[in-house]
């Protein structure tokens, strides 16, 4: 499949009074057409900020300080954040679904007003055509009796239904890429399953690509084809889903898999927590940010700066000096 979006060495920082926070510190990734990728990390690792940077939705004190975002042959970062080029991309070519279904819909406008706005703006549809399309979209995402519910206000919908509306809105202009930023964190498990299945179906139907940003390893294991693991503003491991879960090689990834309870685990399995805390992103030392928590560290880790991504095989890369292979021969979990 052809490459659709390529992000090179993207850097975003926040200039706070306490110092510069390098929220995204030189990440590179790509997404192919009709691919589902997962961007996994804990809160504060920069996964959401990286996606907002791609859309140029970073506001002060945040600032994109470097890198390229190549989409359809153009570097999006060359466009002005408030310019018309960027506006014609947001929503139309790249759409985003946020975590909070409560706050990402405007409470004083009806669903119709919010859905047709984009259709009229980007696709230049007439009011009537836009409304019909909106109803069609709503029933597609599984909202019962969409025709009568389209004039309701967001508060008349449940959390799960609101997230469906968000999905419909993201799909409305048939974008090339949909970014789902923790799309199911605020909903229950059975609703999460419904929404993820729906998103998977929609992605196939609309032939779009999907970026799932999440902290939930299970979600990406189920749906993503390739995965990027982020820690402290950088990508520490990338590979196909089977690479990452079958043969995790970065100490952080290995640690994550050992510390989460699994539904199918054997009785009496002991979790191995990752000791310590995620780092404070202000004034980071130049060495690997995972070093203080790492159980594989070698002498080189203390002397050299953050390890660059190293190619292992196929699409599998890690950013680590240590030889983690011999110790991962045992199955990572269970």
């Amino acid at each position: 499949m052809a490459e659709l979006l390529k992000v090179e060495n993207l850097k975003t920082q926040f200039n706070t009074e306490g110092g510069v926070v390098k929220a995204v510190d030189g990440i590179s990734y790509h997404i192919d057409e009709q691919e589902i990728i997962g961007l996994v990390g804990e809160s504060g690792c920069g996964k959401s900020v990286s996606q907002l940077s791609v859309m140029q939705l970073i506001s002060t004190p945040g600032e994109i300080v470097g890198g390229e975002v190549i989409f359809e042959g153009q570097d999006l970062l060359k466009y002005k954040a408030h310019g018309s080029e960027m506006r014609s991309i947001r929503g139309a070519k790249i759409a985003i679904i946020f975590q909070e279904p409560m706050t990402s819909l405007n409470p004083v406008l009806t669903i119709n007003q919010q859905l047709t706005e984009m259709l009229e703006l980007h696709l230049k549809m007439s009011k009537k055509a836009a409304r019909e399309r909106a109803i069609e979209l709503l029933s597609m995402v599984g909202i019962p009796s969409a025709k009568s519910r389209i004039d309701d206000y967001p508060h008349q919908f449940s959390g799960g239904m609101r997230q469906r509306v968000m999905i419909a809105m993201a799909l409305s202009c048939s974008p090339k890429i949909i970014i789902a930023d923790e799309p199911t964190t605020a909903v229950d498990v059975t609703t999460q399953a419904q929404l993820l299945e729906l998103m998977k179906d929609m992605v196939e139907r609309f032939k779009t690509s999907l970026v799932i940003v999440t902290h939930n390893l299970g979600v990406v294991a189920r749906y993503a084809q390739r995965i990027y693991i982020m820690y402290a503003g950088r990508i520490v491991e990338e590979g196909t889903t089977k690479d990452i879960f079958g043969k995790p090689r970065h100490p952080y990834t290995i640690g994550l898999l050992k510390c989460i309870p699994r539904l199918d685990e054997e009785e009496g399995r002991k979790l191995v927590p990752i000791e310590g805390l995620p780092p404070n992103l202000i004034n980071m030392p130049p060495t690997c940010a995972f070093l203080p928590r790492c159980s594989y560290k070698v002498g080189r880790c203390f002397q050299e700066s953050w390890p660059p991504l190293k190619h292992l095989h196929g699409q599998h890369y890690i950013s680590c000096y240590a030889n983690t292979e011999e110790r991962t021969s045992e199955p990572a979990a269970r």
Binding site: V189, Q192, E197, A221, R222, G246, R262, L263, A333
Partner: peptide, 24 residues
Amino acid sequence: LLSAVPIADPFVEEKRERIILKGE
């Protein structure tokens, strides 16, 4: 409920049966 919980293991996930509930 069990089937809705994803397991962090693509090899297991491939074989799992999924029950998607109707409604809320």
